[in-house]
Simulated assay, not measured.
Amino acid sequence: MSTAQPAALSFRSAVEADIAEVVKLVESAYRGDASRAGWTTEADILDGQRTDAEGVGAIVRDEDSLLLVVERAGELVACCQLEHRGDHVYFGMFAVRPGLQGGGLGKEILAEAERRAREGWGAKEMRMTVVNLREELIAYYERRGYRRTGELSPFPYGDERFGVPLRDDLVFETLVKEL
């Protein structure tokens, strides 16, 4: 029986050439049947797209943002968005390939994202928004030091760039962590 360890993760900023692959990764982690292989699926509450090339490209080109891509042995396995917003950094578009979820990869990536926010921008807080019905996902972030703020913002109903809601009770809740 082999006891070989998986190849180390490498982190880098996304470039224009990564856009299509990042879109594919994010879609596979959140939408459709492929997403059901992991635990981050939103397929039961949202249909349609999670993102598109235009949205990912805007992040790649934004000087106040970083789209962090994570590779193992040259293969894209995860990504996340960091956006500098003054005293804090917004964390979003976090996606881990569905078949690799649940093995600690997300925890390692989140720690690297927090380190980059703290060291690169001097951020004091990391903030994110999570669909309020995603209790398992919120609990995941709480185990990593994030707290629910009770601050709610409306889901963008009618804007299919963010998906087609299958329910009429979706809102975003802000989570925050002191860095």
Rank of each mutant, 00 (worst) to 15 (best):
G163H: 06
D87S: 15
R115H: 10
E136D: 13
E142T: 15
G145F: 10
F11P: 03
E16S: 03
V23L: 04
D64R: 12
V176L: 13
C79P: 01
R148C: 11
R134I: 04
A8K: 13
T149R: 09
E136F: 12
P156K: 09
L170D: 00
C80W: 04
C80Q: 02
T51L: 01
A17C: 10
Q81P: 07
G102Y: 05
E160I: 14
I59N: 00
T40D: 04
E54S: 02
E63V: 14
C79G: 00
E136M: 11
L105Q: 08
G150E: 11
V131N: 08
E151S: 15
G38W: 05
A20W: 01
G92L: 05
E119T: 07
E114S: 14
V15D: 02
G103P: 09
D169S: 10
L9H: 00
G92P: 04
A20Y: 02
E151A: 15
D52H: 05
A73Q: 07
L100A: 06
A43N: 12
G163N: 04
G163T: 10
A78M: 04
T40C: 10
E125Y: 15
L100S: 08
A34R: 14
G55L: 06
V22Y: 00
V56C: 04
V131G: 01
S2L: 14
L152D: 12
V77L: 10
D169P: 09
L110F: 02
T174V: 08
R31Y: 04
Y90F: 15
H88N: 12
L9I: 09
V130W: 05
T149E: 07
